[in-house]
């Protein structure tokens, strides 16, 4: 059975990795090369030129949009989402779990049911609200409406409920008030949970397409996702789309999420194996 197991696993690896390798290799060929010979699995000679152009070439109608700018915008969106969502949902969960107030449970379930609704359902009203607040074409407008996170609140709530009550009581006797307990005890204990949510939310923010498309008309807010799309859109006359650039951009777009997963997964696993409550 051993060789068969390996075969299945190897096939799986190839199935998952081949497209990535193909994108990476194709991005090192010239556009014309890809157009005539199709995708390739071997490196070509245009890597430096393509990546250099993608990162620094000024494109768009205004001639100001470079790959670096798009990378920066995507990072702001990804980090803004991840950090904002963690801060907000942790505080919401803290209030729900540790403070007794009327309708706390009802409130939680109200938050929870919003999990069932995807962003697209409320995208028009959200847009309208942002428009009325004059927040179109701003980073705040891009990030703030999506910060409330039912998923994050739910996960943190479950985690806080698993923290033994005695810890809170010991802290109260030790003279820690609500803020101190949150900062000194709960946040350090939540590291594992925070890194898990960070991974999910960063990628969620990084991959946003429809929302930035709607919210921003100013090209300086272009994200990588929109950049890739716009490169492939230039079917004007007999022009060949810059496949190589699209691939290069896709590869660039992959690096930060992969880095985030690698770094935080290590923390995540470390947290899982070390925690001993």
């Amino acid at each position: 059975m051993k060789p068969f197991d390996h075969l299945v696993l190897i096939l799986g690896v190839i199935f998952l990795c081949l497209p990535v390798v193909m994108a990476l290799m194709s991005s090192t060929h010239a556009a014309i090369d890809i157009h005539t010979n199709g995708l390739s699995l071997l490196p070509g000679g245009d890597a430096m030129a393509t990546y250099g152009k993608v990162l620094t070439h000024r494109g768009g109608f205004t001639g100001d949009v470079t790959g670096l700018l798009m990378l920066r915008n995507s990072l702001i969106l990804g980090l803004g989402f991840a950090i904002g969502k963690i801060v907000l949902s942790m505080m919401a969960a803290y209030a729900l779990v540790y403070f007794r107030f009327r309708f706390a449970t009802a409130l939680f379930w109200m938050i929870f049911t919003t999990l069932l609704l995807p962003l697209e359902v409320r995208i028009m009203p959200s847009y309208q609200v942002m428009a009325q607040l004059h927040l179109l074409n701003t980073y705040s407008g891009l990030i703030i409406p999506l910060l409330a996170s039912a998923t994050g609140t739910f996960f943190f709530r479950q985690f806080f409920r698993s923290v033994p009550d005695e810890l809170l009581e010991a802290a109260r006797i030790d003279g820690a008030g609500p803020v101190k307990f949150f900062i000194d005890i709960l946040i350090p204990l939540s590291k594992t949970m925070m890194s898990a949510i960070f991974i999910i939310m960063f990628i969620y923010g990084w991959n946003q397409y429809l929302w930035p498309l709607l919210m921003t008309t100013d090209e300086s807010f272009y994200t990588l996702m929109r950049g890739i799309k716009s490169i492939l859109q230039v079917w004007i006359g007999s022009q060949i789309p810059d496949y190589n650039e699209a691939f290069a951009l896709a590869v660039l777009a992959m690096i930060p999420p992969v880095a985030v997963v690698v770094v935080f997964q290590r923390m995540f696993i470390k947290g899982l194996t070390e925690s001993d409550k």
């Binding site: 005695e166 009581e169 010991a170 005890i185």
Partner: peptide, 14 residues
């Protein structure tokens, strides 16, 4: 002005 020792010790794990 009291100190308490709990059954499960309630030490801060971190």
């Amino acid at each position: 002005d009291i100190a308490m020792v709990f059954q499960n010790y309630a030490l801060y794990p971190h």
